[in-house]
């Protein structure tokens, strides 16, 4: 019996409209990602309480690259032989730049700095418990012009 579970607990929601989960300081309202607890890192704030907050699912590319060679452990390659993947740093409206792999099927040729990306959840690797998922950034298609597929 295997199940699909996040590769890390409590960092993102799943379902049709997945989102990253951040922490908002209840004193100064600064948002942090990944989630934080215990103390606020805003130097002007002594806050120590946070509420979970779902971050915007769309943002703009700050920069991007790819991994042409298989990264070392603890990275777990989902395929053998290894298939390179793209990475993007995306700035969400909360003012946070967040790294993520780029969704399966896209390469660095598919977007540029400033382009819009949307958060998706895909399988990162599979272990004996089943598929382990992760957040990824997927290019948002520019508004499609009406065309008829042949």
């Amino acid at each position: 019996m295997t199940a699909t579970t996040p590769a890390i607990e409590g960092w993102f929601t799943t379902g049709p409209e997945p989102a990253l989960i951040g922490s908002a300081c209840t004193t100064c309202s600064t948002v942090f990602f990944p989630r934080t607890a215990g103390f606020c890192r805003n130097p002007a704030c002594n806050g120590d309480e946070f509420t979970d907050t779902e971050l915007s699912r769309r943002g703009r590319v700050w920069s991007y690259t790819d991994a042409q060679y298989q990264p070392p452990a603890p990275y777990i390659a989902p395929t053998d032989p290894y298939v390179p993947f793209a990475l993007a740093a995306v700035e969400v409206p909360e003012g946070i730049v967040i790294l993520g792999q780029v969704a399966d099927g896209y390469t660095v040729d598919d977007f540029q700095v400033g382009d819009e990306m949307e958060l998706v959840v895909e399988t990162l690797y599979t272990d004996d418990t089943g598929d382990r998922t992760i957040w990824r950034w997927r290019p948002v298609p520019v508004e499609p012009v009406e065309t008829k597929e042949a």
Partner: peptide, 12 residues
Amino acid sequence: LRFRLLGMTNPA
């Protein structure tokens, strides 16, 4: 975590 979750190396 950056290696496990993202495969993010220094050159990246």
